[in-house]
């Protein structure tokens, strides 16, 4: 066999295979042309990776590497997970054949990309929140239904009585249950 026992063990029983639908970060590397493709999904709570899942299209080494990376990242803080390197993955697996080392590169890369994506989302979230607070301060709001004036923070319109909620896209009040925000046009995503 061209692979170590550890590699074969992970290949036969890969850990954490799957998709996290409401992931906090998603990273994808590779493409079918080069032979390998990996997707990593992470769920983060209090700066700690509380769940990680992966999907891999690729050879035995690629599958074993993804499985090992997922195992190594599980429960780690973001900072600790960023320290997982291609070398440490290959080492944990008891080595990889020379021509398969690039697979271990992909594994850590995919995880780091998911973390990067998580950080970007965090940043975007923070900026949005800031912008929202500003807009609430500055501008007057109107009920999207009867156009009566609003303070901007009410759960319902004091004039017509419809239930309101904040559009997660632009922060403007919208009618509760509406699919589309009349202000920014965004399809409503529940936060």
């Amino acid at each position: 066999m061209i692979y170590s026992e550890k590699v074969m063990e992970h290949f036969q029983n890969p850990r954490n295979v799957g998709v996290i639908q409401d992931a906090d970060g998603v990273g994808q590397v590779g493409n079918p042309v080069c032979g390998d493709m990996m997707s990593f999904y992470i769920k983060v709570k209090d700066n700690r990776i509380e769940n990680v899942k992966f999907q891999t299209f690729g050879c035995g080494a690629a599958i074993a590497v993804s499985s090992m990376v997922s195992e190594m990242a599980m429960g780690k803080t973001i900072e600790e997970a960023l320290k997982i390197t291609n070398k440490s993955v290959a080492k944990e697996l008891g080595g990889l054949p020379q021509n398969k080392l690039h697979c271990s590169n992909l594994g850590a890369d995919a995880l780091h990309k998911a973390i990067e994506n998580y950080k970007e989302r965090q940043k975007a979230e923070a900026e949005k929140k800031e912008a929202r607070e500003k807009s609430v301060d500055k501008e007057k709001c109107y009920c999207p239904y009867c156009e009566g004036p609003l303070e901007g923070l009410e759960d319902y319109c004091t004039k017509c009585g419809i239930e309101l909620e904040e559009c997660p896209g632009c922060g403007e009040p919208v009618k509760k249950g509406d699919e589309k925000c009349p202000h920014c046009g965004a399809t409503k995503v529940r936060v």
Binding site: M8, F11, G35, F57, G58, C59, G60
Partner: peptide, 21 residues
């Protein structure tokens, strides 16, 4: 991908080959 199939087939005692990268 072919290699992953070959390894799984081999674990079941079947020898085959592939032209994958």
């Amino acid at each position: 991908e072919g290699e992953a199939m070959l390894l799984n087939l081999d674990m079941q005692g079947i020898s085959a080959s592939s032209g994958s990268a």
